[in-house]
Design a binder for these strands. Structure first.
Length: 639
RNA sequence: GCCGAUGUAGCUCAGCAGGUAGAGCACUUCCAUGGUAAGGAAGGGGCCACCGGUUCGAGUCCGGUCAUCGGCUCCA
């Protein structure tokens, strides 16, 4: 009998007989391992436990605690869901059903429109399929067989997928469980009974192949875990994220609102303005320090300018237009053309470069109505923009300068982040050579900084490639904020120049960049990240003065005068209420410090300090407290 | 823009066999002068998103519009 040598992850060599399945191999390695086994990884490829080993190679048993194991199980869960849907609505056509981060979905084409009540029905049917514990088996078919099989069920979407697979010369495999079968690469769990903790989460529309010209299908989202406790933990996390929703907190803390009179055009309330102004102050301080100047360009400019810049051709659908004195105007969706006009006002020497021109620019973009979302997705927003005009030899140093700035700013807020590089998109201006040079410059700067990055092919802006910074909030979600875009195109289009050492005209290179991205969105992210409990330096109200009774209001004003000197933001709660109530409300407003002022304090000339998280901190000399909170603010401490 | 759901007081929500609207919180006034997360009482407040239809009668049924929510597409 022929023996096969398997190399295990720890380097051990295991010999098994020809034709042994991965599942059997797992048993022979250890019974505990076999119990936890989900599938195997043979020479880097995931295979079913029933896969037969017929030649030597590396074998790893993928277990329930590995990310791959979870993904395989979710894929099986998606099949079980599809099976359940077909049992309930036999006319449904299956499209695709992949796993995604934290779960899976399956797209269906069916007349019955699914409601959340239906999710329960589907879940119940899934429970039956799991209890019935069908074997999940793999079959490999040639394209003709596969076509016939799916044609017999009029599975138009699967047939389209098969066409694609056939072109790529890939093996066509299907998986069966009970009466159900599906086109699938696999691998899968050995049987449906192995799926344990699952939950269907929502139904939504989704275009076939993600293309809005195609039919809209019904997508059911779900998730599954090996352990009930993990599922519960995940659902709990969703609840926590919902509690942090900036739309809810924004209302509760009176930061901003959006009126039906202006969908996508937010109103900032006084407390939201405090946040905005602080971000702007911080931004100005950092930019001044780093050699930026600040400008402001007009909201509206002649439409002709936007033809020259290329926006009219490449960005038309997102722009608003208007008319003044029979002249066509456009409302700016970006700040760059204005910045360029500013650059062109005079002749520049090579000695003047780089020019770092910052602008907190209010831009308007027509976003599709269905995409608006609180402050995260709006139709008018303020970019913390800057345009750097520079000589080609300055490109790398300037990019590195921006990378350092972004790194500095994100660390102040305690955000970890990662970086992505986006290359030439389909609707791009300019030829490939320029794009390549620009993309190389960005890549070089990243490599010089030793930053790891992911590449997004075809995801760049129409005028140049970009580096995106994705920060991660405390619930683990990521948000694209900062970007650096290199642009050889607009300087060309606008015939920008500087006078070189040789007295001749040369073409400068432009860099577009933002750090926060948009103030509106950044405020939304901060709100969710801190769940409304902004660090003291940002808190709209930093101190709540709480006189115990009417007699103590005068003393509160005396303390307040001291806070005024240092521009510490406070409120005096002089309502005729018990202090328990005043404290509760200050807590709910996430005020960092509450000062309780009653007879004891007035007589002793001190204050009782309560912190929103640490509770009662005891008595303080007013000066001592004020110095302490002032330091906390100046150092922008996170609490 | 597309698919689905939703739209009742400032907020959270109840109401429904179609008979002209209700709670808690908030707000106002009064009483209580209170010591670390809600003191008590009284009162004001709604063109039930908007427009049209069915009906003797519509918050409730039907159609349209607008907005919001969950996604898709897109993106700061």
């Amino acid at each position: 009998m022929k023996l096969i040598k398997l190399t295990l992850p720890n380097g051990d060599i295991k010999e098994v007989t020809y034709g042994t399945t991965i599942g059997e191999a797992a048993v022979s390695i250890g019974s505990r391992l076999a119990k936890e086994a989900v599938c195997g990884r043979f020479n880097g490829e995931l295979k079913d436990l029933s896969w037969q080993l017929i030649h030597a190679g590396d074998l790893e048993i993928v277990t329930t605690d590995s990310p791959d194991g979870v993904e395989v199980m979710r894929h099986t869960a998606a099949h079980i869901m599809a099976q359940a849907v077909l049992r309930l609505w036999p006319e449904a056509k299956l499209a695709i059903g992949p796993t995604i981060q934290d779960g899976f979905y399956y797209d269906f084409d069916m007349d019955h429109s699914l409601s959340s009540d239906d999710l329960e029905k589907i879940e119940a049917e899934m429970a039956k399929i799991i209890a019935e514990d069908y074997q999940v088996t793999r079959e490999e078919l040639d394209p003709g067989e596969a076509r016939r099989l799916f044609e017999s069920h009029e599975d138009i979407y699967k047939l389209e997928l098969i066409e694609g697979l056939d072109e790529q010369d890939k093996t066509i495999s299907i998986y069966r469980q009970g009466e159900f079968f599906d086109l699938c690469r696999g691998p899968h769990l050995p049987s449906t009974g192995k799926v344990n903790a699952y939950k269907l989460l929502s139904v939504a529309g989704a275009y076939w192949r993600g293309d809005s010209r195609n039919k809209m299908l019904q997508r059911v989202y779900g998730t599954a875990f090996f352990k009930k406790s993990q599922l519960e933990q995940y659902l709990h996390r969703l609840e926590e994220a919902a509690k942090r929703d900036h739309r809810k907190i924004g209302r509760e803390l009176d930061l901003f609102s959006i009126s039906e009179e202006g969908p996508g055009f937010p109103f900032f309330h006084p407390k939201g303005m405090v946040l905005r102004n602080l971000l702007e102050d911080f931004w100005r301080e950092e930019h001044t320090r780093r050699g930026y100047s600040e400008v402001k360009t007009p909201i509206m400019l002649r439409e002709e300018l936007w033809h020259r810049s290329g926006h009219r051709d490449h960005y038309h659908d997102n722009m608003y237009f208007s008319e003044i004195d029979n002249q066509r105007y456009a409302i700016k969706p970006m700040n760059c053309p204005g910045g360029i006009l500013m650059y062109q006002r005079k002749i520049h020497s090579y000695r003047d470069l780089p020019i770092r021109m910052g602008e907190l620019g209010l831009v308007h973009r027509h976003e599709l109505s269905g995409t608006l979302h609180g402050l995260m997705r709006v139709r008018s927003f303020t970019q913390d923009d800057a345009h750097i005009f520079m000589r080609p030899d300055q490109i790398e140093a300037e990019i590195i300068g921006v990378i350092d700035l972004i790194d500095y700013v994100y660390k102040i807020f305690g955000f970890p982040y990662h970086v992505e590089l986006s290359t030439k998109p389909e609707n791009a201006m300019g030829d490939d050579a320029i794009w390549e040079a620009a993309t190389d410059a960005l890549r070089k700067a990243l490599e010089n900084k030793g930053l790891d990055y992911k590449v997004n092919e075809g995801d760049g802006a129409f005028y140049g490639p970009k580096i995106d910074f994705h920060l991660q909030d405390c619930v683990g979600r990521t948000w694209q904020c900062g970007t650096i875009q290199l642009d050889f195109m607009l300087p060309e289009r606008f015939d920008l120049s500087y006078v070189g050492e040789d007295g001749q005209k040369h073409r400068p290179v432009m860099l577009h960049r933002v750090v926060f991205g948009a103030l509106e969105r950044f405020i939304a992210i901060l709100t969710e990240h801190f769940a409304g409990a902004f660090p003291t330096w940002m808190a709209p109200v930093q101190v709540m003065l709480i006189p115990v009774a009417e007699d103590h209001v005068a003393y509160a004003h005396k303390i307040a005068a001291r806070l005024d000197e240092l521009r510490i933001r406070y409120e005096i709660d002089d309502r005729n209420e018990k202090i328990g109530r005043k404290i509760r409300e200050a807590q709910l407003q996430q005020v960092p410090y509450m000062l309780v002022l009653g007879n004891n304090e007035v007589n002793e000339g001190n204050i009782s300090v309560r912190h929103r998280r640490q509770g009662d901190l005891g008595k303080f000399e007013p000066d001592q407290f004020i110095q302490q909170i002032n330091a906390e603010i100046k150092e922008k401490q996170l609490d």
